Computed example of a mutant assay.
Amino acid sequence: MSSPAQDWSHPSTGSLVLLRHGETEWSKSGRHTGRTDVPLTDHGEQVAKQTGPLLERFHFRLVLTSPLQRASRTAELAGLTGAEVDENLLEWDYGGYEGRTTKDIRAELGRPWTVFEDGVVPGDTPGETVEDVAARTRRVVDRALPVLRDADVALVGHGHCLRVLASVFLRQEPRFAAQIKLSAGSVSVLGFEHETPAIVTWNRTARV
């Protein structure tokens, strides 16, 4: 996936900071949590609070968050002010696999399954393909790129969505996201090596 044309005489110097929401009861048990609006656990709130120091060195001109409470609450507890809701940061729509674990889905299908390779089935919601999620996250990246020229951007969201977004930013195929782990409450930083999008740090978590 190519990025929009940029003027490399003025290279980007900002950082794109990805903050995955803290622990929920569903993330703790491995249940696929797409559009279900579950709250943070007490531990998830503690981790979110302790994430603040990992963000202090950045100068955020733009902070975007998923509308779901586990993300917006994480942003608040981490000390990120002035956050704007961006619907494109919603988690993957898992359709009929919402609330189910990978182990349960594999047992039902009788074969190996991953959301990145095999996708989902319709349920109460239609579900999304990995390409659908990539198209949404491309809009977030396009919104962030002009700001990154000389300032930092924070994105607060969800595990699978942010992994796909990172793949898009890095100009990789969306399924590359399957190879980059993102823990609950983690901070990851993307930036540039000269004009090339690059991982600066990945999956850092606060000690609680």
Rank of each mutant, 00 (worst) to 15 (best):
L148M: 07
A177T: 09
V156D: 03
L162Q: 13
T137L: 15
L148S: 10
V130C: 07
F176H: 15
G123N: 05
A177I: 13
A166N: 09
V133T: 12
E117K: 11
T129W: 08
V121A: 13
L162K: 04
P174G: 08
F116P: 01
A184I: 00
T114D: 06
Q172K: 14
A135S: 14
A154M: 05
E128F: 09
L170Q: 11
R175V: 15
S167I: 12
V133R: 01
L165S: 08
P122I: 14
A144E: 06
W113C: 04
V156K: 00
R136N: 06
P122E: 02
T125C: 08
D124F: 14
R139S: 14
V133Q: 05
V168Y: 05
R138M: 06
A154H: 03
H160Y: 05
Q179L: 14
T137S: 03
R171A: 15
P122D: 05
A166D: 10
E128K: 04
T137E: 13
E131Q: 13
G123R: 04
V120C: 08
L165C: 07
G159Q: 04
G157T: 10
E117N: 12
R136F: 09
R163A: 14
I180Q: 11
A154K: 07
V164W: 00
L155P: 09
S167T: 08
L155A: 06
A151N: 08
R136G: 08
D142P: 03
A154P: 02
L182C: 02
A184D: 15
A154V: 04
F116K: 05
L145E: 10
C161D: 05
V115C: 02
L145K: 02
C161T: 15
A134I: 07
V156N: 01
T125K: 03
A184F: 01
V120R: 00
R175I: 14
V164Y: 01
R138E: 12
A178Y: 06
G123P: 02
E131C: 00
D132P: 09
F169V: 11
D124A: 15
A144N: 09
R163C: 11
D132W: 08
D132H: 11
G119R: 10
V133M: 06
E117F: 06
H158V: 14
V115Y: 04
V141E: 05
R171T: 15
F116R: 03
P122H: 09
L145N: 03
L182S: 03
V115F: 07
G119E: 07
R175A: 12
V147T: 15
V140E: 06
A144W: 13
P122S: 07
F116N: 02
G123D: 05
R139K: 15
A135V: 11
V130E: 03
E117C: 00
D118Q: 03
T114Y: 02
R139Q: 15
F176M: 12
H160R: 10
